[in-house]
Nucleic acid binder design. Structure first.
Lengths: 330, 330
DNA sequence: CTGAAAGCGCTTACAG
DNA sequence: CTGAAAGCGCTTACAG
């Protein structure tokens, strides 16, 4: 392995000159050429540790995820990794298994590892989080949740909730059930529901019941079974695709057909939703794009550049087979 | 941020003594206690770069994956990350988007970053791979594929293929189609099929047609449509769950019911297969466990300990609703 | 524009 | 068991 000293000797200059060349300092045109050639020939690449030891910073971005085995995480990571590569940065990934303590712990660990920045696929932002952010000297970007004191990138959950609400009403449904998650999760539990409610208020004349369940498909199956217990909506709006998948399963268990007996919508746009029978109508969130944007944003922050405190990522309604059109009298 | 010099001064000893304490060298009991206390009080943690600069090695394991958005990858990464944490190691992840050039490139990049080891979720092992492995001075572990010259961890694909073949025959099916992938992929394309064929040979009296498709669900839908074009098997054995999902979709498109008109099996044991209608009979591979084992193995290699060249990970048949029992005359 | 020197925080022979 | 010193490979004022 060549070092900067080897290159300097070959070029007949001091190490500092090579270093300056590497870092864009002032070097004569002639010398630049010479050093460039030698570096190419030798295939020299600087030792990142030695660099980091001085610069006290690496080219690694720490990414903290609540779980690895979800479509959202996978897609977002794909986007992040892809974009990071363009910037010659690496992605350090840590899975917290939805454990908040572990999340906090990882924030400090990453800081110790001197990552250039931290991307946190957040589920909630507690005071402990805020304290950690302020203690470490590393820029942090929240993805999926927002907080006024932290740089955030979110899917426009309120608008998306509104859009799916409006859509289902346009299809003639008036007797609705909303199967969501705990409001502790601001983006998914609260915002999506709020947007949906706004659409309901605007339309008027709807009967809506609200239910809460967990994030896993099997929890959702149980949750949906409870929905069908006594109340018979013509459409069931679910706060995530996994929940919708669980709900469809529950409907079948009850002997109900989707969408003949009940329409179901999801939220997310997971690939699998296209393959279901019937194919699921859902709100597609642009996770890969969001991941790329997140990567760009954190790199800008790491370089000391300013970015907006809050960035929105887009969405679109994907109308498929799981929603029936209903005739609305009058 | 405290340095080793600060601790040394506080303890009234030389830096080398503190270093020895940290690395388990010989230090008097009394001194140990004192240093320990001081380290606790100050919250000192060694600078990893400075350590790496000398040791020329980090506590990071580089993990290379062909794609991030697959159940197999997600689960395996979950296992790896989980186990790595136990050993105070970190997971550096790079996604190659199924691009072999990028795979090779990443191997060198990781080596340059001085990762302690590389886990490669492999799809194929070319000569270029082998050359890269020999050029870098970092232990490598293949997961999912095997090669005699490289440490490998594989699901026992041949046995698993045999098991599902045997199972389907036991259910009375004799007219079969196998929907696999290119044999370039040794584990999934070749081994699974070979195991299946062994079961067929053993049983005798079966008519089997073999088909090939891609890895994505939509490719599989197209592939399965081709299967149904003229040939009507009573059971369709798919080489992955994604393929099975695509095949079920194709069956519905053709107006066929699963399993009444055709039985379908998958391979992998993805969570989603339990939620399908009908729930998919499949071979469950223990990805999380495999990930953990992979992490343990690479750490052992990184520490210079010997491990078996080849490790097998387990599997089990999950019998669900997508396979019908057929009566076999005679 | 260029070089000599100090220093980043640690580890590791080598003496004692 | 303990310490002084050199060195890992780079960067960065400071002179020139």
């Amino acid at each position: 392995m060549k070092t900067i000293a080897d290159i300097a000797k070959l070029a007949g200059v001091a190490k500092s000159t090579v270093s300056r060349y590497l870092n864009g300092g002032s070097v004569s045109e002639k010398m630049k050429q010479k050093i460039e050639t030698i570096i190419e020939e030798t295939g020299y690449t600087p030792n990142t540790f030695a660099q980091s030891l001085k610069a006290k910073k690496t080219n690694m971005i720490g990414t903290i995820v609540p779980r690895l085995d979800s479509y959202e995480t996978s897609q977002t990571l794909t986007g992040i990794d892809n974009e990071l590569r363009e910037w010659n940065c690496h992605m350090l990934v840590s899975n917290t298994n939805q454990n908040v303590d572990r999340e906090i712990e990882t924030i400090y660990t990453f800081a110790k590892q001197k990552v250039a920045g931290i991307i946190l696929l957040a589920t909630q932002v507690t005071d402990t989080h805020l304290q950690a952010f302020s203690e470490i000297n590393v820029p942090v970007l929240l993805v999926g949740q927002q907080h006024e004191d932290v740089y955030s990138l979110v899917h426009n959950d309120e608008e998306a909730g509104y859009a799916i609400g409006k859509y289902i009403i346009e299809q003639g449904h008036r007797r609705l059930a909303f199967l969501g998650v705990s409001e502790e999760n601001i983006a998914i539990g609260l915002k999506r529901k709020e947007g949906f409610k706004r659409a309901i208020r605007e339309a008027g004349g709807c009967e809506v019941h609200y239910f809460e369940t967990g994030f896993t498909m099997s929890e959702a199956t149980a949750g949906a079974l409870a929905v069908f217990d006594g109340f018979f909506p013509s459409a069931l709006i679910c706060a995530t695709d996994d929940i919708a998948i669980g709900a469809v399963k529950a409907a079948y268990k009850k002997g109900m057909h989707v969408p003949a007996n009940i329409s179901v919508t999801g939220f997310g746009g997971y690939d699998i939703t296209a393959m279901m029978n019937p194919a699921l109508t859902t709100v597609k969130l642009h996770f890969i794009e969001a991941g790329k944007t997140a990567a760009r944003n954190i790199i800008q922050l790491a370089n000391g550049q300013e970015i907006p405190k809050l960035t929105y990522s887009g969405f679109e309604i994907i109308a498929r087979e799981s929603v029936d059109k209903r005739f609305v009298p009058g």
